[in-house]
Design a binder for these strands. Structure first.
Lengths: 201, 201
DNA sequence: GGACGAACTGGAACGTGTTCCTATTTTAGA
DNA sequence: TCTAAAATAGGAACACGTTCCAGTTCGTCC
Protein backbone atom coordinates (compact mmCIF):
# COMPACT_ATOMS: atom_id res chain seq x y z
CA UNK A 1 0.00 0.00 0.00
CA UNK A 2 0.94 3.63 -0.33
CA UNK A 3 3.32 5.04 2.22
CA UNK A 4 0.64 7.59 3.03
CA UNK A 5 -1.36 4.97 4.91
CA UNK A 6 -1.26 3.71 8.42
CA UNK A 7 0.55 0.46 9.02
CA UNK A 8 -2.08 -2.20 9.42
CA UNK A 9 -1.59 -5.13 11.75
CA UNK A 10 -1.01 -7.44 8.77
CA UNK A 11 1.84 -5.27 7.56
CA UNK A 12 3.78 -5.82 10.73
CA UNK A 13 6.27 -8.65 10.78
CA UNK A 14 7.54 -9.02 14.27
CA UNK A 15 5.70 -9.43 17.51
CA UNK A 16 7.55 -6.41 18.87
CA UNK A 17 6.07 -4.31 16.11
CA UNK A 18 2.56 -5.56 16.69
CA UNK A 19 3.08 -4.78 20.32
CA UNK A 20 4.28 -1.25 19.53
CA UNK A 21 1.26 -0.68 17.38
CA UNK A 22 -0.99 -1.90 20.15
CA UNK A 23 0.72 0.30 22.72
CA UNK A 24 0.30 3.31 20.47
CA UNK A 25 -3.40 2.70 19.95
CA UNK A 26 -3.89 1.98 23.64
CA UNK A 27 -2.23 5.27 24.53
CA UNK A 28 -4.37 7.05 21.96
CA UNK A 29 -7.59 5.66 23.37
CA UNK A 30 -6.48 6.38 26.91
CA UNK A 31 -5.60 10.01 26.20
CA UNK A 32 -8.71 10.55 24.09
CA UNK A 33 -10.90 9.02 26.74
CA UNK A 34 -9.41 11.33 29.30
CA UNK A 35 -9.26 14.64 27.46
CA UNK A 36 -10.79 14.28 24.02
CA UNK A 37 -9.38 15.30 20.67
CA UNK A 38 -7.11 18.04 21.96
CA UNK A 39 -5.54 15.80 24.59
CA UNK A 40 -4.38 13.35 21.96
CA UNK A 41 -1.07 15.09 21.40
CA UNK A 42 1.48 13.27 19.35
CA UNK A 43 4.27 13.80 21.87
CA UNK A 44 2.04 12.57 24.69
CA UNK A 45 0.97 9.51 22.72
CA UNK A 46 4.59 8.69 21.91
CA UNK A 47 5.64 9.07 25.50
CA UNK A 48 2.80 7.04 26.93
CA UNK A 49 3.33 4.32 24.34
CA UNK A 50 7.05 4.36 25.15
CA UNK A 51 7.95 5.04 21.56
CA UNK A 52 9.88 7.81 19.83
CA UNK A 53 7.96 10.51 18.03
CA UNK A 54 9.48 9.49 14.72
CA UNK A 55 8.35 5.93 15.28
CA UNK A 56 4.84 7.04 15.99
CA UNK A 57 4.81 8.84 12.65
CA UNK A 58 6.24 5.76 11.03
CA UNK A 59 3.22 3.77 12.16
CA UNK A 60 0.61 6.48 11.66
CA UNK A 61 1.42 9.31 9.26
CA UNK A 62 -0.76 11.87 11.01
CA UNK A 63 -2.85 12.47 14.08
CA UNK A 64 -5.98 11.91 12.01
CA UNK A 65 -4.71 8.60 10.68
CA UNK A 66 -3.93 7.62 14.23
CA UNK A 67 -7.37 8.47 15.56
CA UNK A 68 -9.22 6.92 12.65
CA UNK A 69 -7.20 3.75 13.10
CA UNK A 70 -8.11 3.78 16.77
CA UNK A 71 -11.74 4.20 15.78
CA UNK A 72 -11.41 1.28 13.45
CA UNK A 73 -10.05 -0.97 16.19
CA UNK A 74 -12.78 0.10 18.62
CA UNK A 75 -15.40 -0.44 15.98
CA UNK A 76 -14.15 -3.90 15.16
CA UNK A 77 -14.36 -4.79 18.82
CA UNK A 78 -17.89 -3.45 19.04
CA UNK A 79 -18.84 -5.44 16.00
CA UNK A 80 -17.45 -8.65 17.43
CA UNK A 81 -19.22 -8.05 20.72
CA UNK A 82 -22.42 -7.51 18.80
CA UNK A 83 -22.15 -10.78 16.92
CA UNK A 84 -22.56 -12.81 20.07
CA UNK A 85 -25.58 -11.07 21.43
CA UNK A 86 -28.94 -12.05 20.04
CA UNK A 87 -30.61 -9.21 18.21
CA UNK A 88 -33.85 -8.29 19.87
CA UNK A 89 -36.86 -7.03 17.97
CA UNK A 90 -39.36 -8.52 15.55
CA UNK A 91 -39.45 -5.98 12.77
CA UNK A 92 -36.44 -4.80 10.89
CA UNK A 93 -36.90 -1.28 12.16
CA UNK A 94 -37.02 -2.43 15.77
CA UNK A 95 -33.85 -4.44 15.42
CA UNK A 96 -31.94 -1.63 13.78
CA UNK A 97 -33.11 0.92 16.31
CA UNK A 98 -32.26 -1.37 19.18
CA UNK A 99 -28.73 -2.00 17.97
CA UNK A 100 -28.03 1.59 17.02
CA UNK A 101 -29.30 2.90 20.30
CA UNK A 102 -27.27 0.45 22.24
CA UNK A 103 -24.17 1.37 20.29
CA UNK A 104 -24.90 5.04 20.69
CA UNK A 105 -25.35 4.66 24.42
CA UNK A 106 -22.05 2.87 24.57
CA UNK A 107 -20.34 5.77 22.87
CA UNK A 108 -22.09 8.32 24.99
CA UNK A 109 -20.80 6.64 28.11
CA UNK A 110 -17.33 7.82 27.09
CA UNK A 111 -18.03 11.28 25.67
CA UNK A 112 -14.45 12.47 25.38
CA UNK A 113 -13.40 9.40 23.49
CA UNK A 114 -16.37 9.65 21.19
CA UNK A 115 -15.66 13.29 20.57
CA UNK A 116 -12.07 12.58 19.64
CA UNK A 117 -12.85 9.70 17.31
CA UNK A 118 -15.86 11.31 15.69
CA UNK A 119 -14.12 14.58 15.02
CA UNK A 120 -11.13 12.82 13.55
CA UNK A 121 -13.42 10.84 11.31
CA UNK A 122 -15.20 13.92 10.06
CA UNK A 123 -12.05 15.98 9.65
CA UNK A 124 -10.23 13.34 7.65
CA UNK A 125 -9.19 14.41 4.20
CA UNK A 126 -8.47 12.41 1.07
CA UNK A 127 -5.24 10.95 2.43
CA UNK A 128 -7.21 8.97 4.99
CA UNK A 129 -9.70 7.66 2.45
CA UNK A 130 -8.54 4.06 2.82
CA UNK A 131 -9.00 3.95 6.58
CA UNK A 132 -12.29 5.81 6.40
CA UNK A 133 -13.57 3.43 3.79
CA UNK A 134 -12.82 0.49 6.06
CA UNK A 135 -14.88 1.98 8.83
CA UNK A 136 -17.73 2.83 6.48
CA UNK A 137 -17.83 -0.71 5.16
CA UNK A 138 -17.84 -2.09 8.68
CA UNK A 139 -20.76 0.11 9.63
CA UNK A 140 -22.76 -0.72 6.55
CA UNK A 141 -22.21 -4.46 6.82
CA UNK A 142 -23.08 -4.35 10.49
CA UNK A 143 -26.36 -2.64 9.70
CA UNK A 144 -27.16 -5.05 6.93
CA UNK A 145 -26.59 -8.00 9.21
CA UNK A 146 -29.00 -6.50 11.71
CA UNK A 147 -31.56 -5.83 9.01
CA UNK A 148 -31.33 -9.32 7.54
CA UNK A 149 -30.13 -11.51 10.39
CA UNK A 150 -31.03 -14.83 8.83
CA UNK A 151 -31.09 -14.70 5.08
CA UNK A 152 -27.84 -13.09 4.00
CA UNK A 153 -28.66 -14.08 0.43
CA UNK A 154 -31.80 -12.02 0.17
CA UNK A 155 -29.97 -8.73 0.64
CA UNK A 156 -31.20 -6.44 -2.10
CA UNK A 157 -29.74 -3.33 -3.62
CA UNK A 158 -32.34 -1.37 -1.72
CA UNK A 159 -31.27 -2.90 1.57
CA UNK A 160 -27.74 -1.72 0.97
CA UNK A 161 -28.93 1.74 -0.01
CA UNK A 162 -31.05 1.96 3.12
CA UNK A 163 -28.20 0.81 5.30
CA UNK A 164 -25.98 3.51 3.86
CA UNK A 165 -28.56 6.19 4.45
CA UNK A 166 -29.02 5.03 8.02
CA UNK A 167 -25.27 5.10 8.47
CA UNK A 168 -25.20 8.67 7.22
CA UNK A 169 -27.92 9.75 9.60
CA UNK A 170 -26.25 8.01 12.48
CA UNK A 171 -22.99 9.81 11.79
CA UNK A 172 -24.71 13.16 11.50
CA UNK A 173 -26.58 12.54 14.72
CA UNK A 174 -23.35 11.64 16.44
CA UNK A 175 -21.66 14.78 15.17
CA UNK A 176 -24.62 16.80 16.39
CA UNK A 177 -24.29 15.26 19.80
CA UNK A 178 -20.52 15.62 19.96
CA UNK A 179 -20.72 19.30 19.08
CA UNK A 180 -23.37 19.91 21.70
CA UNK A 181 -26.12 20.71 19.26
CA UNK A 182 -28.22 17.72 20.26
CA UNK A 183 -28.85 16.11 23.60
CA UNK A 184 -28.48 12.39 24.03
CA UNK A 185 -32.24 12.04 23.89
CA UNK A 186 -32.51 14.03 20.69
CA UNK A 187 -29.77 11.95 19.15
CA UNK A 188 -31.68 8.77 19.84
CA UNK A 189 -34.85 10.38 18.57
CA UNK A 190 -33.20 11.51 15.37
CA UNK A 191 -32.00 8.00 14.59
CA UNK A 192 -35.30 6.45 15.49
CA UNK A 193 -37.24 8.79 13.22
CA UNK A 194 -34.95 8.16 10.29
CA UNK A 195 -35.04 4.40 10.69
CA UNK A 196 -38.81 4.37 10.95
CA UNK A 197 -39.10 6.46 7.83
CA UNK A 198 -36.75 4.23 5.92
CA UNK A 199 -37.97 0.87 7.15
CA UNK A 200 -41.74 1.11 7.16
CA UNK A 201 -42.85 -2.31 6.05
CA UNK B 1 -23.88 37.41 22.63
CA UNK B 2 -21.00 35.55 24.14
CA UNK B 3 -17.53 36.71 23.28
CA UNK B 4 -16.86 33.24 21.97
CA UNK B 5 -18.93 33.91 18.88
CA UNK B 6 -18.20 35.52 15.58
CA UNK B 7 -19.27 39.10 15.19
CA UNK B 8 -22.43 39.08 13.10
CA UNK B 9 -23.19 41.87 10.67
CA UNK B 10 -25.84 43.24 13.00
CA UNK B 11 -23.30 43.59 15.78
CA UNK B 12 -21.21 45.99 13.76
CA UNK B 13 -21.87 49.66 14.20
CA UNK B 14 -19.84 51.51 11.65
CA UNK B 15 -19.68 51.11 7.91
CA UNK B 16 -15.94 50.68 8.21
CA UNK B 17 -16.50 47.67 10.42
CA UNK B 18 -19.02 46.12 8.09
CA UNK B 19 -16.52 46.67 5.32
CA UNK B 20 -13.75 45.01 7.31
CA UNK B 21 -15.94 42.04 7.97
CA UNK B 22 -16.77 41.80 4.29
CA UNK B 23 -13.12 42.06 3.28
CA UNK B 24 -12.22 39.30 5.71
CA UNK B 25 -14.89 36.95 4.40
CA UNK B 26 -13.99 37.81 0.81
CA UNK B 27 -10.35 37.00 1.49
CA UNK B 28 -11.39 33.77 3.16
CA UNK B 29 -13.48 32.67 0.20
CA UNK B 30 -10.77 33.69 -2.22
CA UNK B 31 -8.05 31.76 -0.44
CA UNK B 32 -10.28 28.76 0.14
CA UNK B 33 -11.34 28.73 -3.47
CA UNK B 34 -7.73 28.77 -4.55
CA UNK B 35 -6.12 26.30 -2.15
CA UNK B 36 -8.76 24.76 0.08
CA UNK B 37 -8.78 24.43 3.84
CA UNK B 38 -5.02 24.49 4.30
CA UNK B 39 -4.61 27.64 2.23
CA UNK B 40 -6.92 29.57 4.52
CA UNK B 41 -4.15 30.64 6.86
CA UNK B 42 -5.00 33.29 9.37
CA UNK B 43 -1.96 35.41 8.53
CA UNK B 44 -2.79 35.21 4.83
CA UNK B 45 -6.43 36.09 5.41
CA UNK B 46 -5.43 39.07 7.55
CA UNK B 47 -2.95 40.28 4.97
CA UNK B 48 -5.31 39.87 2.02
CA UNK B 49 -8.12 41.56 3.92
CA UNK B 50 -5.72 44.35 4.87
CA UNK B 51 -6.36 43.85 8.55
CA UNK B 52 -4.13 43.05 11.49
CA UNK B 53 -4.06 39.51 12.79
CA UNK B 54 -5.47 40.63 16.12
CA UNK B 55 -8.35 42.32 14.38
CA UNK B 56 -9.13 39.19 12.43
CA UNK B 57 -9.36 37.29 15.71
CA UNK B 58 -11.51 40.07 17.07
CA UNK B 59 -14.06 39.44 14.35
CA UNK B 60 -13.77 35.67 14.23
CA UNK B 61 -12.39 33.89 17.28
CA UNK B 62 -10.96 30.95 15.33
CA UNK B 63 -10.28 29.66 11.86
CA UNK B 64 -13.27 27.37 12.16
CA UNK B 65 -15.56 30.25 13.17
CA UNK B 66 -14.24 32.16 10.20
CA UNK B 67 -14.88 29.39 7.71
CA UNK B 68 -18.28 28.50 9.09
CA UNK B 69 -19.26 32.16 8.90
CA UNK B 70 -18.08 32.22 5.31
CA UNK B 71 -20.16 29.14 4.66
CA UNK B 72 -23.13 30.84 6.20
CA UNK B 73 -22.77 33.85 3.92
CA UNK B 74 -22.38 31.69 0.84
CA UNK B 75 -25.35 29.62 1.87
CA UNK B 76 -27.53 32.65 2.38
CA UNK B 77 -26.62 33.82 -1.08
CA UNK B 78 -27.46 30.44 -2.55
CA UNK B 79 -30.74 30.46 -0.75
CA UNK B 80 -31.68 33.88 -2.08
CA UNK B 81 -30.73 32.87 -5.60
CA UNK B 82 -32.91 29.82 -5.21
CA UNK B 83 -35.94 31.80 -4.16
CA UNK B 84 -36.21 33.52 -7.50
CA UNK B 85 -35.97 30.45 -9.66
CA UNK B 86 -39.09 28.41 -10.16
CA UNK B 87 -38.74 24.94 -8.69
CA UNK B 88 -39.09 22.36 -11.39
CA UNK B 89 -40.63 18.97 -10.84
CA UNK B 90 -44.11 17.66 -10.16
CA UNK B 91 -43.60 15.34 -7.27
CA UNK B 92 -42.00 16.34 -4.01
CA UNK B 93 -39.15 13.92 -4.58
CA UNK B 94 -38.44 15.34 -8.02
CA UNK B 95 -38.32 18.88 -6.73
CA UNK B 96 -36.02 18.06 -3.84
CA UNK B 97 -33.69 16.03 -6.02
CA UNK B 98 -33.60 18.76 -8.62
CA UNK B 99 -32.71 21.46 -6.14
CA UNK B 100 -30.18 19.39 -4.23
CA UNK B 101 -28.46 18.27 -7.38
CA UNK B 102 -28.25 21.77 -8.69
CA UNK B 103 -26.81 22.99 -5.42
CA UNK B 104 -24.39 20.09 -5.29
CA UNK B 105 -23.23 20.77 -8.84
CA UNK B 106 -22.67 24.37 -7.88
CA UNK B 107 -20.46 23.34 -5.00
CA UNK B 108 -18.61 20.80 -7.08
CA UNK B 109 -17.71 23.50 -9.58
CA UNK B 110 -15.47 24.98 -6.89
CA UNK B 111 -14.03 21.89 -5.22
CA UNK B 112 -11.40 23.60 -3.11
CA UNK B 113 -13.88 26.04 -1.66
CA UNK B 114 -16.32 23.27 -0.94
CA UNK B 115 -13.61 21.22 0.71
CA UNK B 116 -12.63 24.10 2.96
CA UNK B 117 -16.16 24.98 4.02
CA UNK B 118 -17.35 21.42 4.44
CA UNK B 119 -14.37 20.35 6.51
CA UNK B 120 -14.69 23.39 8.74
CA UNK B 121 -18.36 22.60 9.23
CA UNK B 122 -17.67 19.02 10.20
CA UNK B 123 -14.70 19.83 12.40
CA UNK B 124 -16.49 22.50 14.37
CA UNK B 125 -16.73 21.85 18.07
CA UNK B 126 -19.19 23.06 20.67
CA UNK B 127 -17.89 26.63 20.62
CA UNK B 128 -19.20 27.03 17.08
CA UNK B 129 -22.61 25.60 17.90
CA UNK B 130 -24.41 28.89 17.31
CA UNK B 131 -23.05 29.39 13.82
CA UNK B 132 -23.54 25.75 12.93
CA UNK B 133 -27.10 25.87 14.11
CA UNK B 134 -27.78 28.82 11.82
CA UNK B 135 -26.56 26.91 8.81
CA UNK B 136 -28.51 23.82 9.78
CA UNK B 137 -31.71 25.84 10.12
CA UNK B 138 -31.12 27.45 6.77
CA UNK B 139 -30.67 24.08 5.10
CA UNK B 140 -33.73 22.56 6.73
CA UNK B 141 -35.98 25.49 5.94
CA UNK B 142 -34.74 25.53 2.37
CA UNK B 143 -35.61 21.88 1.98
CA UNK B 144 -39.02 22.32 3.51
CA UNK B 145 -39.79 25.17 1.15
CA UNK B 146 -38.87 22.95 -1.76
CA UNK B 147 -40.96 20.12 -0.42
CA UNK B 148 -44.03 22.28 0.21
CA UNK B 149 -43.67 25.19 -2.18
CA UNK B 150 -47.23 26.43 -1.92
CA UNK B 151 -48.84 25.52 1.34
CA UNK B 152 -46.46 26.56 4.07
CA UNK B 153 -49.19 25.87 6.57
CA UNK B 154 -49.50 22.22 5.84
CA UNK B 155 -45.95 21.46 6.95
CA UNK B 156 -46.18 18.48 9.27
CA UNK B 157 -43.86 17.15 11.91
CA UNK B 158 -43.00 14.38 9.53
CA UNK B 159 -42.05 16.84 6.82
CA UNK B 160 -39.59 18.48 9.15
CA UNK B 161 -38.18 15.13 10.20
CA UNK B 162 -37.75 14.11 6.59
CA UNK B 163 -36.08 17.37 5.72
CA UNK B 164 -33.60 16.87 8.53
CA UNK B 165 -32.80 13.36 7.43
CA UNK B 166 -32.27 14.55 3.87
CA UNK B 167 -30.02 17.29 5.16
CA UNK B 168 -27.97 14.72 7.06
CA UNK B 169 -27.59 12.53 4.02
CA UNK B 170 -26.65 15.48 1.88
CA UNK B 171 -23.94 16.49 4.30
CA UNK B 172 -22.58 12.97 4.51
CA UNK B 173 -22.59 12.70 0.74
CA UNK B 174 -20.74 15.97 0.49
CA UNK B 175 -18.17 14.83 3.02
CA UNK B 176 -17.72 11.62 1.08
CA UNK B 177 -17.13 13.57 -2.08
CA UNK B 178 -14.80 16.07 -0.46
CA UNK B 179 -12.64 13.31 0.97
CA UNK B 180 -12.45 11.52 -2.35
CA UNK B 181 -14.45 8.52 -1.26
CA UNK B 182 -17.27 9.18 -3.69
CA UNK B 183 -17.26 10.48 -7.24
CA UNK B 184 -19.55 13.32 -8.24
CA UNK B 185 -21.87 10.82 -9.87
CA UNK B 186 -22.02 8.64 -6.78
CA UNK B 187 -22.73 11.67 -4.66
CA UNK B 188 -25.72 12.57 -6.79
CA UNK B 189 -26.84 8.96 -6.75
CA UNK B 190 -26.58 8.74 -2.99
CA UNK B 191 -28.80 11.78 -2.53
CA UNK B 192 -31.29 10.60 -5.10
CA UNK B 193 -31.66 7.20 -3.50
CA UNK B 194 -32.21 8.67 -0.07
CA UNK B 195 -34.78 11.18 -1.26
CA UNK B 196 -36.69 8.53 -3.17
CA UNK B 197 -36.74 6.30 -0.13
CA UNK B 198 -37.94 9.08 2.10
CA UNK B 199 -40.44 10.68 -0.24
CA UNK B 200 -42.27 7.80 -1.87
CA UNK B 201 -45.81 9.04 -2.07
C1' DG C 1 -11.59 71.16 20.13
C1' DG C 2 -10.15 67.92 23.95
C1' DA C 3 -10.42 63.71 26.58
C1' DC C 4 -11.37 59.14 27.09
C1' DG C 5 -12.28 54.42 25.86
C1' DA C 6 -12.72 51.19 22.13
C1' DA C 7 -10.79 49.42 18.04
C1' DC C 8 -6.88 48.64 15.20
C1' DT C 9 -1.84 47.86 13.88
C1' DG C 10 2.41 45.42 13.90
C1' DG C 11 4.76 42.01 15.60
C1' DA C 12 6.67 38.90 19.22
C1' DA C 13 5.87 34.63 21.45
C1' DC C 14 3.89 30.10 22.55
C1' DG C 15 1.88 25.34 21.65
C1' DT C 16 1.29 21.48 18.94
C1' DG C 17 1.44 18.85 14.46
C1' DT C 18 4.90 17.58 11.36
C1' DT C 19 9.53 16.99 9.34
C1' DC C 20 14.26 15.91 9.52
C1' DC C 21 18.73 14.35 11.08
C1' DT C 22 22.17 11.49 13.53
C1' DA C 23 23.36 7.82 16.58
C1' DT C 24 21.96 3.41 18.20
C1' DT C 25 19.57 -0.98 18.17
C1' DT C 26 17.27 -4.75 15.95
C1' DT C 27 16.55 -7.86 12.17
C1' DA C 28 17.59 -10.66 8.17
C1' DG C 29 20.70 -12.86 5.23
C1' DA C 30 25.37 -14.82 3.95
C1' DT D 1 28.84 -15.28 13.69
C1' DC D 2 29.34 -11.23 11.04
C1' DT D 3 27.49 -7.63 8.18
C1' DA D 4 24.35 -4.63 5.77
C1' DA D 5 19.83 -2.82 5.91
C1' DA D 6 15.88 -1.49 8.33
C1' DA D 7 13.81 0.24 12.40
C1' DT D 8 13.99 3.02 16.48
C1' DA D 9 15.51 6.66 19.83
C1' DG D 10 16.20 11.27 20.91
C1' DG D 11 15.65 15.64 19.86
C1' DA D 12 16.14 19.97 17.01
C1' DA D 13 13.64 22.71 13.79
C1' DC D 14 9.77 24.47 11.17
C1' DA D 15 4.75 25.87 10.17
C1' DC D 16 0.60 27.65 11.43
C1' DG D 17 -3.23 28.59 14.84
C1' DT D 18 -3.60 31.33 18.68
C1' DT D 19 -2.49 34.70 22.36
C1' DC D 20 -0.65 38.83 23.99
C1' DC D 21 1.19 43.39 24.26
C1' DA D 22 2.69 48.32 23.29
C1' DG D 23 1.71 51.92 20.51
C1' DT D 24 -1.56 54.31 17.38
C1' DT D 25 -5.98 55.70 15.43
C1' DC D 26 -10.95 56.21 15.55
C1' DG D 27 -15.38 57.32 17.51
C1' DT D 28 -18.07 59.56 21.05
C1' DC D 29 -19.28 62.57 24.60
C1' DC D 30 -18.48 66.97 27.01
Amino acid sequence: MSSANSLAVEDLGSAAQRDRRKRILDATISLASQGGFDAVQMRAVAEQADVALGTLYRYFPSKIHLLVSALQREFERTEVALRDRPIEGDTTAERVISVLKRTTRGMQSDPKLTEALTRAFMFADASVAAEIHQVGMLLTSMLIRVMRPDDHDKVTEEDVAIAKVIGDVWLSALVGWVTGRNSAAETGQQIEVAVKLLLRD
